[in-house]
Design a protein around this nucleic acid. Sequence first.
DNA 1: AAGCTTTTTGCGTGTTTTGTGCAAAATACG
DNA 2: CGTATTTTGCACAAAACACGCAAAAAGCTT
Lengths: 335, 335
Amino acid sequence: MASGKRASQADIAEKLGVSVSTVSRALANEIGISEAVRADVQRMARMLGYKSKHPPTLGKLDKRALALVPLNSAMGSLASFYHGIVEGMRAQSEEAGIVLDVRLVNEDMVTLDFIRRQVSKTGANGVILAGIDPDEDIAHWAQEAGTALVLANGNDPQMRFNSVSPANFYGAYQATQCLIDAGHRKILHYTYRHRPTILQRRRGFEAAIAANPGVEGIVVISNEHSSKDLLASLLAGEYDVTAVFCWNDGVAVSMVEALLGQDSPMQQGFSIVGFDDLPIAGMANPRLSTVRVDREAIGRGVIRLLANQLDGENAIQQLEIGVSLVAGETVHTIA
Amino acid sequence: MASGKRASQADIAEKLGVSVSTVSRALANEIGISEAVRADVQRMARMLGYKSKHPPTLGKLDKRALALVPLNSAMGSLASFYHGIVEGMRAQSEEAGIVLDVRLVNEDMVTLDFIRRQVSKTGANGVILAGIDPDEDIAHWAQEAGTALVLANGNDPQMRFNSVSPANFYGAYQATQCLIDAGHRKILHYTYRHRPTILQRRRGFEAAIAANPGVEGIVVISNEHSSKDLLASLLAGEYDVTAVFCWNDGVAVSMVEALLGQDSPMQQGFSIVGFDDLPIAGMANPRLSTVRVDREAIGRGVIRLLANQLDGENAIQQLEIGVSLVAGETVHTIA
DNA sequence: AAGCTTTTTGCGTGTTTTGTGCAAAATACG
DNA sequence: CGTATTTTGCACAAAACACGCAAAAAGCTT
């Protein structure tokens, strides 16, 4: 009681002008206490350093999530992609009563130390990495510390983390099949290394090629051949293909600009398909054929998986959001 | 009012001994009406054939799901697989307050007509197909009628339906990689056609083979070569492989029995890996190395996706549950 | 458009439920 | 085994709820 002693329920009760029994019930999370009073009591208890024997969070703890979005993605051609995801996360967080902190970060700032600091600063109990594949340190920490971690627009081949991504495999498969259905027999896929999500697109492409005997597929990797080089090669007729499937709309549109249009330098029927359905796809002329990704649905899924995990679901969940072909004007039927 | 006329709110009110305003509010799903009275009013309204202008179910309708589980799967070697899924669905339904009807059916009884009848009989607003790939009719109907449909342990390459499956691709990839890490350079994958989920296992196998230059993969399809034939060929040394990855534990165990053990007829270090971690895998001697699938998590995921969809989420979601290698005694390091 | 019938809405009131304190019982701590 | 602390049973005021009444609004008919 005296200032020297450990704080007791009586002290809390006095400070707040309520009875001891109220304090007791509030701390025990019993029913029959108004939320206002309960919050006051628990806050005061923390302030006075009262140590309760009750488990700190019996049942429904409040959920706070920290979302890290790489600045370069959020600014570049993928801006609207990540914007959609963030919108979806916001909406679902609202509905689920989760406090969401979105932080734009420089991708190479995302180190274990950084995350740890941010987490403790915001008091988050879940972390979302948007378009960032965690390195070993981070992976290890998340598993040890038991912090909920969800990859937004990511994929973990090792199945250690929950993730949400577009249905990259089947989407790429469909896009490729669509070119094949249009009569194309030799198709080039322009992709890039390192991200598992993009690798799944490539696999979808290859699976579609393999499923259609007589159709040939060529894979070109952006890390090895810049898009400028590729364009030059295509113009020179080096690859002898009639269609290109690009790993995303950005490169696809730049190809459309260079290869198609009024006085196309390419042979009749040359086709291009992108992926993501970014706004730029609609602005291209002719309109790019691409694969629509429901970005907001990805965001909503991320929050749901996070909430699941905080609720105790400990199986790893990898969620893929269905995509659909958008028929533009860059797929032409040939022979 | 008179028996000849259309029923009015006044009639309902009189029958139940409440006021007209109460009836009005009950039918409009307004607040300030007890659940008991609301239910009475709505039931009486239905009985008297009263036609309200309000949308039949404004907001939170109660959720009833119908799960169809194929009898042959539920009885055969996969019994425990589907049992786990059903358990998971039950548990999650309970928690989410969903009424779940599980029906064991003969797989080829699952026609559109049958489903329709069952749905109207049980009043379900969501359907779960366990291990059944819907035919065109059913697919079409579900999309038209707007009935929620989730595939449990299924996969829809066309991305029309929500589905939950084990992480077949990455699981098969890891299993194969594990054999490669053990030194195997020529590996056979025994698979079977027709189910997209199993096809993803094959793709995972092929991706792992492709990612390891110098390793050769052979795919044998059960529809073309019975497991008896395959065994004979392996014993005869026809394939010249040092390891086999089977599409499920059933066939894997029969191979273990025939090929491994005390006086194994195969060369030193011959390895076998299965998939699913069925109880039979643990009963085999030596213990089968396989890939563990959390069946209950699949079931829980199914119910969550269904609930999402009933709550208005209309993006297609394909959920994969992470799997993990179970180290048994049938993978041997060689050379 | 006036005169019905039917439905919705504003408000008042009886009935539950909720939130809290008091005091006694139970528990922890020397 | 007493004393400080916490929990529990019960009582009661305050708030929320559930409903009816009557007026207003909205639909139908001619």
